[in-house]
Simulated assay, not measured.
Amino acid sequence: MQYKYLAALAFSSLTLAEPAVFNKGPLITDFGQHAKVEAMLPLPADAKFKVAFDVAEQAEPGKLNKRFNSLARFVNMHVANGVKAENIQLALVVHGKAGFDLLSEQAYRQKFSHSNANIALIKALADQGVQVMLCGQSAAAMEISAKNLMPEVQLGLSAMTLHALLQQQGYTLNPF
């Protein structure tokens, strides 16, 4: 009986906590909201990141791909916490059905009868130097033509090839 009371008390105090405040920017202002973390481990003043993100899951038609937004959050939260923007190099490797989220507006609308919510995000990422790459094997399997991709997207032989080349350049793989 005591345990039930303690669990109920603990849960009720959790539900009364203030919701986290997620901030915009500082570099990509329309995407990549992030929360301030109190008492976090300090980031080295000279921190450098070379990170590849792997995305295979497509967003619901007409919706933003949350995995793409993770790159904007990565940039924003690190710059907001003192990492120099020039010390952050990111690559987005897309394969599987997520390749559809890289279609141009015209091609996306033709396929899904919706606007592609990812276009502004991909442009903002590319403007920050993010390499946006699509697996050529997935593109072939999904019948995605290079001419139907956003101009910011580079087509590679395969996601496996892209990751191997990025690793040779010192990129680590972000598992999220």
Rank of each mutant, 00 (worst) to 15 (best):
M133R: 13
F31H: 07
A45I: 03
S104Q: 14
F176Y: 14
L64V: 12
M1Q: 12
L103Q: 04
A52F: 01
V79T: 03
V132I: 15
E60Y: 01
S113E: 13
A8M: 14
K48R: 14
A159T: 02
A47L: 15
Q167S: 10
A124P: 01
A126E: 06
N23L: 13
Q33C: 10
K50S: 12
V132S: 01
M133N: 06
L102E: 11
A20K: 09
K50W: 01
F11R: 12
E152Q: 15
N174F: 14
N81E: 13
G99K: 11
Q128E: 15
P42E: 10
P19A: 07
L16V: 02
E57W: 04
E18S: 11
T172H: 05
A80S: 13
E60D: 05
V79C: 02
H34W: 15
L43F: 07
A20Q: 05
D46F: 00
V94L: 12
Y3K: 15
G99F: 13
D54K: 07
Q131T: 09
L90S: 11
Y3A: 15
S145E: 13
F176I: 14
G62M: 04
A35H: 03
R73W: 01
K63Y: 01
N65G: 06
H95W: 13
G136S: 03
E86M: 09
A17V: 05
A7C: 12
F100D: 14
A56K: 09
A72G: 02
L41E: 09
S145K: 12
Y3L: 15
Q110Y: 03
N23W: 00
V153N: 06
M1A: 15
L90N: 12
A8T: 08
V55H: 08
L166D: 04
E105S: 15
F100W: 14
E38M: 05
N116W: 00
F49W: 09
S145I: 03
L41C: 05
S12I: 11
F74K: 06
L43H: 06
Q89M: 07
A85N: 09
V83D: 00
A7S: 13
K111Q: 14
A107L: 08
P42L: 07
R73G: 08
A80R: 04
V93P: 09
I144W: 03
T29S: 10
A85F: 06
H114A: 10
L6S: 03
Q128A: 08
Q167I: 08
N76Y: 09
V94E: 07
V132T: 06
L121F: 01
N81T: 08
L14N: 12
A45V: 06
F11G: 10
M40P: 03
F31P: 00
A45T: 07
Q154G: 08
S13I: 13
K36N: 10
M40V: 07
A126I: 02
A164Y: 11
G170D: 02
E60K: 06
L103P: 05
L6A: 08
